[in-house]
Amino acid sequence: MDKKKPKKVFVQGAIPPEKIANSIANHQSKTNIGAHSIFLGQIRADEIDGKTVSAIEYSAYEEMAESVFHEIREAAFSKFDITCAHIYHSLGPVKTGELCLFVFTSSAHRKIAIEACNYFVEEIKANVPIFGKEIFEDETHQWKVNK
């Protein structure tokens, strides 16, 4: 039932660390869970041609992104025996050192939780139409491409 409900993935700005703590706390009542796996994406201060990245401004083809997120969820639930999964991704500016992606998978056992978490992260990076403008300290910018 958890997996059928379309969920809101995008949050405006950085993901606050409290959200991670709260998500963990919200699962304490689900005692069939034996393992959580968490991935956190953080904005790195890359140096490119002598200029340092100070923030990434995210934008997305939101309607398509939401439906791709939903497809990834459906595929993950059919591939892995996970109890639940949560994904949050930032839109708008996120400063270096702040969090832009939070993936949280839970299962009875660790291996499945970890594999499912990796699956989500790789699928999100490859298939979700999200775009990132890397803003430098001098306010010039370039467009990020996932490696």
């Binding site: 992606l101 999200i130 467009w143 990020k144 996932n146």
Partner: peptide, 10 residues
């Protein structure tokens, strides 16, 4: 019809 540059999520 959407014109999409390389994806950069995460």
């Amino acid at each position: 019809v959407a014109f999409l540059p390389p994806f950069a999520g995460g």
